[in-house]
Amino acid sequence: MRDFRLFKNAVYFPKSGICTISDLHIGLEDKLNKQGISFPFEERKSLVNNLKKVKEKFEPNKFVFNGDTLHTFGEIPDKVPEKLDEIISICNEECLFIKGSHDSMLPYLLEERDLEIKESYEYSGLKFIHGDKDLTELDDELIVIGHEHPSVEIHGDKIDCCLYEKGKSCIFSIIVLPSFSKLTKGVVINDMKLRDFMSPVLRNCNTFADFRLKIELNGEELEFPSLKKFKDKL
């Protein structure tokens, strides 16, 4: 399986120079505020700062936003276009958007900005899809999805993680990206089974036990063996 790096919940493929980020959920804070949750999560600041750090670290050729870039359906809270613009400008417009389950309003915003949105994107054996729908064809070596917001609990601490599998239990290799938004609650995978995931792509795998995890702590990447080898130690 090809090499990938993890930093601030973004994944980078050095060979192709692509950086992928999933589940920004822009506007989640605004939506909560509308529901009477008056707490400064500082969504813009956290998204922008982290994205800048990611850019500085990897200097990618292209950013692929792998779905659920927006949070709200049906309406766009006032501050969302601003936040989106800032993110696009950090990428120097070198970006491409994949449509996620929350992105019904994204095409309109992108059209105004002359940017592309796709159901999926393929590039030299990599396939980026959000993961909310099943695969239609299988000719790529590595599938990259978001949608699940995986995290792992270690000694009571919840840490976002990247899940991946090298084509043992599925007929393809797969990477599940952590959520880039700090506001979404990570879904703890410690006790999960395949059927507990939402993505049909994952549910159609044979077993969860062969999945491995990668986490990043202060710039250091930690690789874990397959879940079956260490799950009981968690």
């Binding site: 909560l32 009477g36 949750i37 008056s38 707490f39 400064p40 609650k185």
Partner: peptide, 28 residues
């Protein structure tokens, strides 16, 4: 009044309040 139990005609259940506050405790 950081989580408003009653807001714009909707009432948040205790469970909902807990769900929301679990989201924010680390930020807080």
């Amino acid at each position: 009044l950081m989580i408003l139990e009653n807001y714009k005609g909707n009432k948040k259940s205790g469970r909902r309040q807990q769900f929301n506050s679990d989201m924010m405790i680390n930020f807080a």
